[in-house]
């Protein structure tokens, strides 16, 4: 039974990281209808900036996390300005392919730095003995990661519910023309959505980097793993991203905990989310919380 609870706990840890990664993704999709395939690369870049500031510039880790969030904020904003602003109104496939191109460019740029070929790990700044209660243990890094995730998600929810900018972002995602007519600058909102996504990506990347170590392949794989999460939750729902993140984390942990090693199966944790995703899409084509678009000829 404690094995089960252990899996639940690690599922929630993994799931909350998925949720945080998916959050930025959903932000971009919600406001500008862009499927950002380069999100994993932004996550990785955020993690690397945090590492560089912490280790190479000797800044305390929490301050460098804030700095890194600030840098990716402007990085993502400029990405939107340079690459995606010209593609507003182009067909979906063009927009997807631009983000794929962006992914390749970021890949290339990262391979030019030492991060592309070598593995790094963050210095230990938390107690290494795990917290244990009743046979279930969780490491301090994971604990802090989950707490930061919860804070970030709460902050984002507050931002969208209460602040003027957040409300204008929701307005744009609801109806672009109407929000333009009441004086909201739609391109600015797009830029801001990307910037916020970059910010949350840096946070997600730093947390993942602290838990698993800095490996470019692992980090940018998160950009692909978020797909089942966001599709399951519905592409345009923040609540959906959080719920689906937790669900996918649990599925993954249960699959690798119970299926691997039995019946000759191996590595099921990587594939189970996709299978579950396909099954769910058959019954709910717009995910759990996605808006069912009404199409007219």
């Amino acid at each position: 039974m404690s094995y089960f609870f252990q899996l639940v706990v690690s599922g929630i840890v993994v799931g909350s990281i998925y949720a945080l990664s998916a959050l930025g993704f959903v932000l971009i999709y919600k406001s500008s209808r862009v499927l950002n395939i380069a999100h994993g690369q932004i996550i990785a870049v955020g993690a690397f900036i945090t590492y560089a500031l912490t280790v190479w510039a000797n800044i305390p880790i929490f301050i460098s996390l804030v700095f890194s969030m600030g840098i990716t904020f402007f990085l993502a904003m400029s990405v939107e300005r340079v690459f995606l602003r010209r593609l507003i109104g182009e067909p979906i496939i063009s927009v997807i392919m631009v983000t794929i191109g962006l992914m390749s460019i970021l890949d290339g740029l990262v391979y030019l730095t030492p991060f592309g070929s070598e593995n790094f790990s963050f210095p230990e700044f938390l107690p290494t003995t795990p917290i244990g209660f009743g046979g279930v243990s969780i490491s301090w890094t994971q604990m802090v990661g989950v707490i930061i995730t919860i804070i970030m998600i709460a902050a984002f929810s507050w931002f969208f519910k209460k602040s003027t900018v957040g409300i204008s972002m929701r307005a744009v995602s609801d109806d672009q023309l109407a929000s333009m007519s009441i004086g909201i600058s739609v391109p600015k909102v797009f830029g801001l959505a990307w910037a916020m996504a970059g910010l949350s990506a840096a946070a997600a990347g730093s947390i993942i980097g602290n838990i698993t170590g800095l490996n470019f392949e692992t980090l940018h794989a998160f950009g692909i793993v978020v797909f089942p999460v966001v599709i399951l939750g519905g592409l345009d729902s923040i609540l959906g991203a959080v719920v689906a993140g937790i669900i996918m984390g649990l599925i993954q942990q249960f699959a690798s905990g119970y299926l691997d090693g039995n019946w000759g199966l191996n590595g099921t944790g990587g594939v189970a989310p996709y299978i579950i995703l396909l099954v769910i899409l058959l019954f709910k084509p717009h995910g759990l919380f996605g808006i069912h678009e009404i199409e007219r000829v």
């Binding site: 690459f83 182009e90 460019i105 391979y111 592309g116 070929s117």
Partner: peptide, 24 residues
């Protein structure tokens, strides 16, 4: 320094992006 691993994705990405921006 292995330039090929960096240049391949870089040039590939640039080609896609430039084509989509200037010759979709």
């Amino acid at each position: 320094m292995n330039l090929a691993t960096a240049l391949k994705p870089l040039s590939f990405g640039l080609v896609i992006v430039l084509f989509l921006m200037f010759e979709p």
